[in-house]
Each structure stands twice: as structure tokens, then as C-alpha cells.
Design a protein around this nucleic acid. Structure first.
Length: 259
DNA sequence: ATGTCCCTACCATAGGGA
């Protein structure tokens, strides 16, 4: 079974690439983030034509997540149970489903913007709610993983130059502790291999030639419980998908699972 | 070059977010 996660940065702008990539990569289950579309604008028919169905949580201009599967979708849960609001809104940042016996959450963790910004506090509270929401599934015997854009680099080597992140979000102790606390429910970081260079970065800023200079970050993660992690045969970042015109600023992380 | 791209508001460009 091939499972992947990809922050697609607008499913509308990326649709031709998405459909081509699903076919070329042979992905069975894809967790998507940053759909940036209304629920009714989700390309259900185009995906169905390729044999995929989807659990979608989207409400317009920002955020939006989905689980897309060609091996079945059951037990969908829309939204993060107990998740905090921001500016009075409960944003579409989490959706889960069970696909052929494997349970997955697709998550888009709040960015945080700046340390001390209300969005940063929101990010930490959102992660605490995620930890509680996954606790039972993480401890269970069936394969389970949380996949998505965590907007946190787990370690200093997960950014291109830690000195460039002085005082910035994504690398603070509090964010990393929130991530460690989430792993503490029984999840381990399935580290993908890079297809080029030394670090499995998953995101490169569009600005200032980030991708050509390999100024990347590993912020898209796969956290699996023992049954999931024990079945991983391979994992890699498909940096080819970050190339060329019309690419997302994130590359897919692909996991091959034997269950 | 503040070396980009996406969305929306509104119909050409500005603003917000990442």
C-alpha cells in the first residue's frame, strides 16, 4: 500500500499536476492539505474518474484538508475534536478516515506566524487538542498514522540553516515539545529518505530561489504507531514534484506500507 | 530585485497569507 501526504497549495491551481501525479506515483491513499477551495469546488468527479473517493473538509479561501483513496474510505471524521477556534472560527485543518484497515489523519497545523502572535498560541493549543484526539488510535493495535503539514521542523538539521531561524516559529522549543508530546501517545516519526542531497526537506519557499538553492525545511511529517511504523518498507520525499512551473511549495512524502 | 505564488476583492491592482 502506498500512502502519501502533500500540501498542495490550492487543489484548483494544482489539479492537472495532482491527477498526473496520482497516476504516475501509484498512490493508494493521499492526505492533502491547503486545498484552498470551498467544499463544493472539490474535484470529486475528476478524482472518481481515476478511481479515487475522498473525505473532504474545506470551507473556502484558506486551509482545507482531504483524504483521497482508491482502496476505500470508511469511518470519516471531519474536523479536530476539541480543536480550538481562531478569530471565532473553527478552521478546516483535520480530517480522518480508514482505508483498507489503515486509519489516517490528514492535518494542517496552524502556521503560528510569529512567536508571541495569537496564532502561535493557537498553534500550540491546536497541537494539544490533536494529541488528545489521536490518543486512542495511537495506542490501538491497528495501523494508524497522522500525516500532514505540521509547520514544525523536529530538529535543527530539518532546516537548511538553523541560524536563519533565530527567534522564528517552526523551530522553537515549545513547538518541538508539543510535537514530542504528540509522539508520546505512541507515534514515531517515519523519516523519509531524500532523493537528492543530504536532508529530506519537504518544503522550499517560493521566494529567493529557495528550491534551486535547496533552502528547505522538513515540516511535512508522517507519525505512525507501532503497527504502522513496523510495516514501513520505504519512505521518500518526491522532490521531482517541486520542480517546474505550477509546482506547490511542498513536495509529497511517500510511504510504502506492508500490512 | 522584497529573485513567489495563491487566493479574494473586483475587473487592474492591492492586500493577506505562507
Amino acid at each position: 500500500m502506498r500512502i502519501a501526504t502533500w500540501n498542495i497549495n490550492s487543489i484548483t491551481a494544482r489539479l492537472p499536476r495532482l491527477l498526473a501525479w496520482l497516476e504516475s506515483s501509484g498512490t493508494d491513499v493521499l492526505c492533502l492539505q491547503e486545498l484552498k477551495c470551498a467544499a463544493e469546488a472539490f474535484p470529486t468527479e475528476q478524482l472518481r474518474a481515476l478511481g479515487y473517493e475522498a473525505a473532504v473538509h474545506a470551507d473556502g479561501r484558506w486551509n482545507g484538508v482531504a483524504v483521497v483513496s482508491r482502496i476505500g474510505i470508511s469511518e470519516p471524521v471531519t474536523g479536530l475534536p476539541g480543536g480550538p477556534d481562531y478569530d471565532g472560527l473553527n478552521e478546516p485543518r483535520a480530517v480522518s478516515a480508514t482505508c483498507a484497515g489503515v486509519r489516517v489523519w490528514s492535518v494542517y497545523v496552524p502556521n503560528g506566524r510569529e512567536v508571541g502572535h495569537p496564532h502561535y498560541d493557537y498553534k500550540l493549543r491546536w497541537l494539544a487538542a490533536l494529541r488528545e484526539a489521536v490518543r486512542a488510535d495511537a495506542a490501538a493495535g491497528r495501523p494508524f498514522a497522522v500525516l500532514g503539514d505540521f509547520n514544525i521542523a523536529p530538529a535543527d538539521e530539518d532546516v537548511w540553516d538553523i541560524s536563519a531561524f533565530e527567534g522564528a516559529t517552526h523551530v522553537t522549543a515549545a513547538e518541538r515539545e508539543a510535537l514530542a508530546s504528540l509522539r508520546g501517545t505512541g507515534l514515531s516519526d517515519v523519516r523519509p529518505r531524500p532523493l537528492k542531497y543530504d536532508h529530506p526537506f519537504t518544503y522550499w519557499d517560493y521566494r529567493q530561489l529557495g528550491f534551486p538553492k535547496n533552502r528547505g525545511m522538513r515540516i511535512d511529517l508522517v507519525l505512525g504507531n507501532a503497527a504502522f511504523a513496523g510495516g514501513v518498507k520505504d519512505a521518500y520525499v518526491d522532490r521531482e514534484e517541486r520542480k517546474g512551473k505550477g509546482a506547490s511549495d511542498h513536495a509529497p512524502v511517500v510511504v510504502d506500507l506492508e500490512v
